[in-house]
Design a protein around this nucleic acid. Sequence first.
DNA 1: CGTCCAATAT
DNA 2: GATATTGGAC
Length: 539
Amino acid sequence: MDSCGFSSPRTECFPAGLRVLVVDDDPTWLKILEKMLKKCNYEGCDFGLRKKIERNIKMMIRQELIDCVCAVMSVDGETSRVMKGVQHGACDYLLKPIRMKELRNIWQHVFRKRIHEVRDFEGHESLDEMMLRGGADLLDDGFFFGGDPVPGKKRKDVDHMSDDRVGGDPSSLKKARVVWTVDLHQKFVKAVNLIGFEKVGPKKILDLMGVPWLTRENVASHLQKYRLYLSRLQKENELRTTLGGTMHSDLPPKDAAAGPGNASLQTLDTKSSKQNISVHHDDPRNCEGIAKASPTPMAETKAAEISDLAKSSTSSISFDRSFVESSDAKSEPTIQVQYSWSAGASPLQFKPEQKPQARAPPIGFKQEQKPPLRFKKEQQAPLFVAEHRFDHAPVAVHHRKDNKASDKPSPTATDPPYSKAKRGQSSKATKVESTAALFCIQPERPFTDCHTIDPIPSSIWSTKTSQSFEQNLYDEPWHINALLGTGSALASDYTSQYPPNPYLGTIDPFCFNGQELITDVSSLKFLIDPVIDEGLYIA
DNA sequence: CGTCCAATAT
DNA sequence: GATATTGGAC
């Protein structure tokens, strides 16, 4: 294909002639992907032809997968295989479940790659233009993978020349911020589980997680937050207990601290833990542009509150989630979701004046030496926000201001927020080692009630062995949503007293496929020879 | 301007 | 490695 065989960049279609390689062990998935690709107007792609596929497999492998490679792997693993593909030139890989939106956007990876290639030997202005036109609404923060030398041209990058540091030194580049997606976090949790909560260290976790681009510092930072969260959770429970009162067999402090470590969630009385959830909808259309790096505001669009918990003077933990429909809002259930959990909003929050140092240290923690600085506003104080971003977890470009806010206490009031932000910034692309894209499942509809959910053995979540349950899932959208939203509860053998809690995430919501995909399965036939272990290659 | 949270410093 | 602080983004 010629390097500029891109059809109208403004469309969401693939550029004409783009080759996509899909790798998966499961022929069913390949078929699904084929359908989805077709839906994305990937015309001209020969992804359905078995013979050709087989040929292309060999050919492309020989060519080391020069162009776009989209490897679809199971969520839980085979990282090595994915990484192999990446090493061989894959632009991207997707994790199941794949959504339409993701497919629609993968061309951008090729686009980016090509731009990079072209830039190497000729001017790139026109390509940049194309980029801007074609990806304006898609190529925002976090689109490009790190490790790619392409500087985020459109980013208000910071250049450190203006501070007296070693300007221009590549070592002065800031690291890209890691977005702790649910997926990533669950890897983290799994690692913690494996190691044991008392013995965890960033290094061990990092090793177990097997996420190549992640650094020990990343993990350490996350671990810090994690511990903070757990300790706070425990404090809440202690307070709850102290204030006496609750009829619930509350999550014991021990579990709060060690919960993620041993996943020993206790059974709760179904009646008392019944949730009364109110869901507020916003117009999904307001939420378009999810591909941009502005996920968090979406969290405000919906909120499910567990009012029973609040009433019973237990901690009222709110679960905020957002459902963002894809720009192609018509038919597909490819609703982009960002949701966030926030623990907090409790009427019984710790206030700073409550002398945090008087608290007993949480299990597994040392005595706190200082009150946590961040807990000034406990009324809100979400401790963790798990974001389902559409964009890739590791964001490639990071920007910093040169000046602290304190340097300029009174910026010109007339400054639009963003022009202000841009000013005084120098640019610096951040290098990231990642070529991984982490995508998340998106519930199609918000759940309105999940109190009827039966306890579900956690094993199901990882093994998907329960056919009936699966079926049930797909039949019942609220099931899916509930599963996503109340994963920790459902993963254990009690029914959802506690709100969705990524830190207690013992389930992997991503092992579920969306309804859209699954409903097709029954009619699917094997498209390719199962012998082709690596799956379907689309060229 | 405040909050959130990963990065960075200690 | 733990924890405190910084700073970017929203």
